[in-house]
Each structure stands twice: as structure tokens, then as C-alpha cells.
Amino acid sequence: MKLSQLATSLSSKNAGNFHLTFDIVFDSADTYRRVLQSGALTPESVAARYGVSVDEVVSIVGFDPGNAIKVNMRRRRPSGDPGETDVFGAQQYSPLLDLEIP
């Protein structure tokens, strides 16, 4: 199934001026654990969907109390730099939507 079908919400936002954080929230602990344990969401798989080096994916964190997975990535450039088109980092999550989860 695609990640967008399993998650109740999937969003992105700046975490500070140099990083993006993606929050993938599920409606049950079971679904959350399934995705976390599927091995589908890794720094390598995320980097591949954005065409970036794996070093740009800073961390992937499972947040048990919220049934949520957080993916952290460096921004392309600092927020508000010349040529900025997404100063809040709010529209960077689409490549994760159709990530296949076994």
C-alpha cells in the first residue's frame, strides 16, 4: 500500500532555518508499527525519492506516543535565501505520498 493510504496526515515544515521535518501520523499503533517495522522508510529510500545524497536525510524517528514517524532532512538552502519558493517548507512532502509499504 502507498504511504498516503496508510497515514492520516503527512506534512512538512521547517525545523529551524536549515532543516525540514516531515511528520507522518497514523491512526493506530498497529499501522504505525507496521510501517516502522516494514523497512520501507529508511534514509536511503527517502533520499532516493528526492534525488539527494543519503547524508541529507538527517534522521528518521519513531514517536510512539503519537503513532507518528518523523523524517528529518536538510533544506536545499537556508530559508529565505535568494530564489526561495517555499519559505516555510510546507510543500516538500509529496514524494513520500506514494512510497510503497509492503
Partner: peptide
């Protein structure tokens, strides 16, 4: 808990 995730790298 959703808001605990907001705008931070480490919840």
C-alpha cells in the same frame, strides 16, 4: 502529541 512533532527535529 501531533503538536509535539511540530517544527522540531526531535520529539
Amino acid at each position: 502529541t501531533g503538536h509535539t512533532l511540530y517544527e522540531r527535529l526531535d520529539p
